[in-house]
Amino acid sequence: MNNIVQSWIPALDGVKAKLQAGAKVADVGCGVGFSTLLMAEAYPQSTFVGFDFHEPSILDARRHAADHGLGERVRFEVASAKDIAETGFDLVTMYDCLHDMGDPQGCATHMRRILSPGGAWMIVEPIAGNNPAENMNPVGRLYYNASTMICVPTSLDQEVGAGLGAQAGEERLSEVIRGGGFASVRRATEGPFNMVLEAR
């Protein structure tokens, strides 16, 4: 989780400076809000909205925000990615959840709509090669197991049911993101377990 402010956001083009000056950020698929609150604590000039379709998680996130004294700069709302009505975000973040969505390309299309001109979308996904042979390593095997049990069934249970899974790879993810209308996708950084893509 510390990678968010120590390495991932600094790897994005000009985003850290924007957040330090004051930006509007959406954290989509925020769960109980830890990623949102971590960013809010690191960038006190910026405002943050966490979105998740799971209402019990959002209720927990609101309690966490109050406990951390961040209620004035952080909000949490119940909404699926494609149903977010608010716009004008300078940064949208998505941590390990695009591959779980039934319609990731539809999500990408909507992320482009809610971004302000010049805004960036940071997509953090499990590290993976572009074909199964590249993923035959300890981390890849673990992710394939998790994908079979959790990620793929979750996606298939939603509209479209793309079933990207936890081993989609940069090539396939970039194709999905560009299909949503983004002109550029680049791997900003990576670690042993995640890749960080920047879309504009």
Rank of each mutant, 00 (worst) to 15 (best):
M1W: 03
N3M: 07
Q6A: 15
W8N: 10
W8E: 12
I9G: 12
I9M: 06
L12P: 10
V15A: 01
K16C: 08
A17Y: 00
K18T: 07
K18F: 00
A21Y: 00
V25E: 01
A26W: 03
G29P: 11
G31S: 13
F34A: 11
S35G: 11
L37D: 08
M39V: 08
E41W: 00
A42Y: 05
S46T: 06
T47Y: 01
D52A: 11
E55V: 12
I58G: 12
I58Q: 09
A61D: 03
R62E: 06
R62D: 01
R62H: 01
R63P: 02
R63E: 08
A65H: 01
A66E: 14
A66M: 11
A66V: 03
A66L: 04
G69I: 01
G69R: 00
G69P: 01
E72G: 10
V74I: 04
R75M: 06
V78I: 14
A79M: 09
A79D: 05
S80N: 14
S80H: 08
A81L: 02
A81P: 08
D83F: 00
I84H: 01
T87I: 05
T87S: 12
T87C: 09
G88C: 02
F89W: 05
D90S: 01
D90N: 12
L91P: 09
L91Y: 06
V92W: 02
T93S: 15
T93D: 09
Y95C: 10
C97G: 13
L98A: 12
D100F: 15
G102H: 07
D103Y: 04
D103L: 10
D103P: 14
D103A: 15
A108M: 08
H110C: 09
M111Q: 09
R112Q: 13
L115W: 00
S116C: 13
S116W: 00
P117F: 07
P117M: 12
P117G: 09
G118P: 11
A120T: 14
W121E: 11
W121Y: 15
M122Y: 08
I123K: 14
V124M: 10
V124H: 04
V124D: 07
I127T: 13
A128Y: 01
A128N: 04
A133C: 00
A133S: 05
E134G: 00
P138A: 10
L142Y: 08
Y144L: 08
N145W: 05
A146E: 02
S147M: 03
M149F: 03
M149K: 15
M149N: 07
I150M: 14
I150T: 13
C151R: 07
C151I: 09
C151L: 08
V152F: 03
V152R: 11
P153T: 11
L156Q: 11
L156F: 01
E159Y: 09
E159P: 14
V160E: 09
G161S: 10
G161W: 07
G161C: 02
L164N: 11
G165E: 03
G169W: 00
E171A: 15
E171N: 06
R172S: 14
R172A: 13
E175Y: 05
I177R: 14
R178M: 13
G179W: 03
G180W: 02
G180H: 12
G181L: 05
F182Y: 11
F182T: 12
S184P: 03
S184T: 14
R186A: 10
A188P: 11
P192D: 15
M195I: 10
V196W: 03
V196R: 04
R200D: 07
